[in-house]
């Protein structure tokens, strides 16, 4: 399956057929630091992603003194 990462935008391939949670763990991403977007929907970390899926992991952190 395809995973889109941001800042900067890039794409990687990882194994599907498992929960989002497991993908995040493999990528060393804490679950609450990203939105998990599939198509035009948000999905929770317990959802299973399949091999043909594409998900975007969009960071939620914004920074600097504001």
């Amino acid at each position: 399956m395809k995973v889109i990462l941001r800042n900067p935008r890039r794409e990687i391939e990882v194994a599907g057929g498992r929960r989002v949670k497991d993908v995040l763990r493999e990528l060393h991403i804490l679950p609450e630091t990203v939105l998990v977007i599939r198509g035009d929907e948000l999905i929770t970390a317990d959802q299973v992603v399949r091999d043909g899926d594409t998900i975007e992991l969009r960071p939620v952190m914004s920074g600097g003194a504001r």
């Binding site: 609450e32 939105l35 977007i37 948000l42 969009r58 960071p59 939620v60 952190m61 914004s62 920074g63």
Partner: peptide
């Protein structure tokens, strides 16, 4: 931040993702 991001996404607000 997770909640404000989710709100912006679900409301289809076109915001800048790049920092």
């Amino acid at each position: 931040e997770l909640e404000t991001s989710a709100y912006a996404f679900l409301r289809r607000i076109d915001y800048i993702v790049e920092e």
